[in-house]
Design a binder for these strands. Sequence first.
DNA 1: TTACTATATAACGATATAGTAGAATACTGT
DNA 2: ACAGTATTCTACTATATCGTTATATAGTAA
Lengths: 120, 120
Amino acid sequence: MKKRKDLNDAALEMIANRFKLLSEPTRLKILHTLGDREMNVSELVAATGANQANVSKHLGILYDAGVVTRRKDGLTVNYRVADETIFELCDVVCSRLKTHFDLRRLSLNQLLQDIDPAAE
Amino acid sequence: MKKRKDLNDAALEMIANRFKLLSEPTRLKILHTLGDREMNVSELVAATGANQANVSKHLGILYDAGVVTRRKDGLTVNYRVADETIFELCDVVCSRLKTHFDLRRLSLNQLLQDIDPAAE
DNA sequence: TTACTATATAACGATATAGTAGAATACTGT
DNA sequence: ACAGTATTCTACTATATCGTTATATAGTAA
């Protein structure tokens, strides 16, 4: 009983950690810049406009979490997204945000029409 | 072009904020305790074992983000999950974690068998 | 070896936020 | 009005982490 509770808490913590990975704009930008391609750090720095050390740090975090793979090739290190569910998660959030905004826009239009039915 | 980049950055930030909501174990616990029911703060405090002020604070955060609705009834305040995509997101993460562990278990079994084929 | 490049790491300041204790608010019943 | 209860709000501490600068490491080429 206590054990089960602990297990659940541990599971919740793992799930939370997964979400925390995606809760930073810079990391999301790196992941979406990567897409399904393989890119090295310099390319990611150029594409994202972020600081090199910062990009490297975030890539390290993503690598430790198993979200990206790393392939060393001479001087450069190539990264690639290893966990496709990342994009699935982002899609769900995007859809949700979109419908949210659509609903708000509808409400706004309704409000505007209530205020001045003649206007278009 | 610059405008589009800014827009994208804004979008990424909104998505990141959405994930940040789910990146705290206590909030996840509250949401999963709620499920599809309506519960008041005291019930959530009892069910989660968290501090009352803490539960209230997290509920406020979730309310501001539109994840839960709030219905006042006399002394108590009843909360309910308003954004079902939350559970969809958690499901995706859970599946991912499960397959991850399954793969690790398979690798481990393979390793054990490689070491000692006679053992079962 | 020396110079150069790509990446990772260390150390630091700034910021954000979780959790908590206590005060303040809102409602109910007497 | 008064007492009691449910909830929120207000500081406050502790911790985590982002971004940055400077440095270290690893590979390449001369």
